[in-house]
Lab assay of single mutants.
Amino acid sequence: MSGIALSRLAQERKAWRKDHPFGFVAVPTKNPDGTMNLMNWECAIPGKKGTPWEGGLFKLRMLFKDDYPSSPPKCKFEPPLFHPNVYPSGTVCLSILEEDKDWRPAITIKQILLGIQELLNEPNIQDPAQAEAYTIYCQNRVEYEKRVRAQAKKFAPS
C-alpha cells in the first residue's frame, strides 16, 4: 500500500471527524483483525431537504486505489439507486470521479460526498449510466419523482 495514499486518507479521516456536513457519514471499514482499512470507507449521503430525495439516507462505498490521490476513489451505492447517473452496479457516474475528466488530487472526501448529493437531485442527462431511470427522467418527470420519493422512504434511517 502506498504511504502517500494512507497518509492522505488519515488526514481526510481526521478532517472529517473534526468537521463534516450534518447527516453525512464517512467511516473507514475494519479489517478482520480489527485494524482500520483506510482504503475502503462506508459512507452515507442524506437526501437534500426540499427535494424528492429528502428523508432518505443512501449508503455508498468509497474504494481507494494505491495511487490515490492521483486517481479518484470508486464510489458505489449499496444497494444501487434508481438514478440516471448511477450504473446498474451502483457505481456513480460523475465527472469529478473520473481521472480523465474533472478529478483533481486536491478534491476531498467531503467535496465528493457533497457533489454526489447535488447530483442526486440534478442528474447530468449528457452522461446517462442507467437506461430506465434516464428514460423516465426525460419522458415523465412526475413518475420519476414518485419513484425517487418511494426510494427515499425505503432508505429512511430507522
Score class of each variant (00 low, 15 high):
residue 3 G to E: 12
residue 3 G to H: 08
residue 4 I to D: 15
residue 5 A to C: 15
residue 6 L to R: 05
residue 8 R to D: 09
residue 9 L to R: 01
residue 11 Q to V: 13
residue 13 R to T: 00
residue 14 K to Y: 06
residue 18 K to D: 03
residue 18 K to Y: 03
residue 21 P to L: 05
residue 23 G to E: 09
residue 23 G to V: 00
residue 24 F to N: 05
residue 28 P to C: 01
residue 29 T to W: 04
residue 32 P to Q: 14
residue 36 M to L: 14
residue 37 N to V: 13
residue 39 M to T: 10
residue 39 M to K: 07
residue 41 W to L: 03
residue 41 W to P: 03
residue 42 E to Y: 12
residue 42 E to D: 12
residue 45 I to F: 07
residue 49 K to S: 04
residue 51 T to N: 02
residue 51 T to D: 02
residue 51 T to I: 03
residue 51 T to P: 02
residue 51 T to V: 01
residue 52 P to T: 13
residue 52 P to K: 11
residue 53 W to Q: 02
residue 54 E to Q: 12
residue 56 G to Q: 03
residue 57 L to K: 09
residue 60 L to C: 14
residue 61 R to E: 10
residue 64 F to Y: 10
residue 64 F to D: 05
residue 64 F to G: 03
residue 65 K to R: 15
residue 65 K to L: 14
residue 66 D to A: 11
residue 68 Y to C: 05
residue 69 P to M: 01
residue 69 P to D: 03
residue 72 P to R: 06
residue 72 P to T: 05
residue 75 C to D: 03
residue 75 C to H: 03
residue 76 K to Q: 14
residue 77 F to D: 00
residue 78 E to A: 11
residue 81 L to R: 03
residue 82 F to W: 10
residue 83 H to T: 14
residue 86 V to H: 09
residue 87 Y to V: 07
residue 89 S to R: 05
residue 89 S to T: 12
residue 90 G to W: 01
residue 93 C to W: 00
residue 94 L to K: 00
residue 97 L to M: 12
residue 99 E to K: 11
residue 99 E to F: 09
residue 101 K to T: 13
residue 103 W to H: 06
residue 105 P to Y: 03
residue 110 K to Q: 08
residue 111 Q to R: 15
residue 111 Q to A: 14
residue 112 I to G: 06
residue 112 I to Q: 13
residue 113 L to M: 11
residue 113 L to W: 04
residue 115 G to P: 04
residue 117 Q to H: 13
residue 117 Q to E: 09
residue 119 L to A: 00
residue 120 L to F: 06
residue 121 N to S: 12
residue 122 E to M: 12
residue 122 E to D: 13
residue 123 P to K: 00
residue 123 P to Q: 00
residue 126 Q to K: 12
residue 126 Q to F: 09
residue 129 A to W: 00
residue 130 Q to V: 05
residue 131 A to L: 11
residue 131 A to E: 09
residue 132 E to Y: 07
residue 133 A to M: 01
residue 133 A to C: 09
residue 134 Y to C: 07
residue 135 T to M: 10
residue 135 T to I: 11
residue 137 Y to L: 06
residue 138 C to M: 11
residue 139 Q to L: 11
residue 141 R to P: 13
residue 141 R to K: 11
residue 141 R to Q: 14
residue 141 R to G: 07
residue 142 V to K: 15
residue 144 Y to E: 01
residue 144 Y to L: 01
residue 147 R to V: 11
residue 147 R to A: 10
residue 150 A to W: 09
residue 151 Q to P: 01
residue 155 F to R: 04
residue 156 A to G: 08
residue 157 P to M: 07
